[in-house]
Design a protein around this nucleic acid. Structure first.
Lengths: 144, 144
DNA sequence: AATCAAATATACTCATTTTGTGTAAAAAAC
DNA sequence: GTTTTTTACACAAAATGAGTATATTTGATT
């Protein structure tokens, strides 16, 4: 499951992505528009800033803005930044690999095989979905 | 991420799936073989039993055994039973649907669209992986 | 029927993570 | 130099995860 924080992060990024070129948004505005607790949002935006996804100006006309194009920020980047590994267990993770404590012979672990398969497929999906993709989506395309 | 419990559940099921026809396994054996705390395992097996995946006999020659064929139990069944929804948010879930509290117009939520897309793809993968699939896997097939 | 191994049920503990809030300082604009 | 906004750090409440403890029930074997 997506953490609340991750959900907030994506919503905030989507908000920034919709901003007219050159404009900035203050946390108060994002907070109100996306229903995100203001102080919590500030924390999240800082993380996004450290990851070079957004930038900010302080002061009266300040605020946050995207540092990359909407098509250059994909869900996978946000997920990894906020929630960490994509894989369902660390032993199957690409970027956050850690062996299982008890695992005797990792190579032979049936579960790990399955989880790596799942991870590979998930990566492929997540890479494809960018902020732009999300904004361009039409209701009709949705198959529920 | 997969909960520890879910991981244990799958490992226990794999163990049962490898058992010679007609044999039963006691919790102590599964616990030892798969490195699962015995009491915790009993809890998990009970859940699997209520879900009709396994059955048990009490008494001296008792133990647990699979109630279905290995090809009839897929990861999706176990995941849903133990960890709940597959979707990354409840608003995108098929079996555990719940609207977001703050969501004004769900139909227009960009994030939800993406999450439903992801869920659909994930479901497809998880349905395909059964206990049998996992046991049949060969090391060479693994693309890391 | 007595005994013993094993399953079942319930409640509880403990640690960690998540989700925030509070306070204060620094930066920029005017 | 005052206002507005970001930044930094510390703290706290709440939820969740992981596992334990204890007691009871069931069923096969002797």
């Amino acid at each position: 499951m997506l953490s609340q924080k991750n959900k907030y992060a994506i919503k905030a990024l989507l908000y920034l992505a919709q901003l007219p070129k050159g404009e900035r948004a203050k946390t108060a505005d994002i907070s109100k528009a996306a229903h995100i607790p203001k102080k919590f949002l500030e924390l999240i935006l800082l993380e996004l800033k450290r990851a070079q996804m957004v930038a900010s100006k302080q002061g009266v006309q300040g605020g946050y803005y995207l540092l990359k194009k909407p098509e250059e920020i994909s869900l996978i980047d946000v997920f990894r930044l906020i929630d960490g590994p994509i894989a369902l267990l660390p032993c199957a993770s690409l970027k956050f690999y850690e062996p299982c404590e008890d695992c005797q012979q990792e190579e032979a672990c049936r579960l790990r095989w399955a989880l790596i398969e799942i991870r590979n497929q998930t990566l492929a999906i997540l890479e494809k979905i960018s902020l732009k993709t999300m904004l361009d989506q039409k209701t009709e395309e949705l198959i529920l």
